[in-house]
Amino acid sequence: MKVVDIRKDGIDGIRKHENEEISVTGCLGERYIGCGMKNGIMHIAGTPGNAIASYLDGGSIYVDGNVQDAAADTMNAGLLAVNGSAGDALAYGMRGGRVYIRGDAGYRAGVHMKAYVDRKSILVIGGRTGSFLGEYLAGGIIIVLNLDERKDITGYFCGNGMYAGTIYLRTQCPPVNLSDKLITRNVGKEEMESVIRPLVTDFASVFSLSAAKCLEGRFMAVEADKSKSYSQLYAAV
């Protein structure tokens, strides 16, 4: 596998090997790694900077450490797997592909993710998230596992303004401050097997975790109350 020292070769050094499997070493805050990448496999050691995997259009990026803000911004396809935690505004406007975070995600994760028919954006977070998770969600699936069983799985204002898609939380209690335009429900066996199990099993395999442990306990789904559409707020003049 080709090794690229980012401090020596810079982002351009990565671009030269876009369609290959490479190992990127020495990351210390460099931004825009994998921006617009279409193919290839990248293993990153160190701490990449903001906007990693923005506009990612294919291929896979594995990060040993943490990622910072705006990771997977407007990502279209491919995989971003982070063995640590992610900063704020993770997977903003994501259109497709998978983002797996082994640890926590900061504020505003999964805002305005999308889906169309069979094409779904998938965000799985092993830890917990900050506030505003999945705001304005337009489609796709967010799963938060809270594997360390900490209090408050999502922070405040989870799913505010969402109008499609589903947020699955491995918890028995609905998040605090949930909008009255959202509904919560317990996930049944069929949905557990057809939707959550395949995604969580894939997530667990990427980080060599026990899928059974990740799936322990009850899951709750947060969705938009479709009977309360935004058009009801308005009166056309």
Binding site: A89, Y136, G139, Y163, A164, Y230
Partner: peptide
């Protein structure tokens, strides 16, 4: 990439 027939919302700020 938004569902048919549902109101589509653009948030007031860019969240990033």
């Amino acid at each position: 990439m938004v569902p048919e027939g549902l109101d589509a919302i653009s948030p007031a700020p860019h969240h990033d």
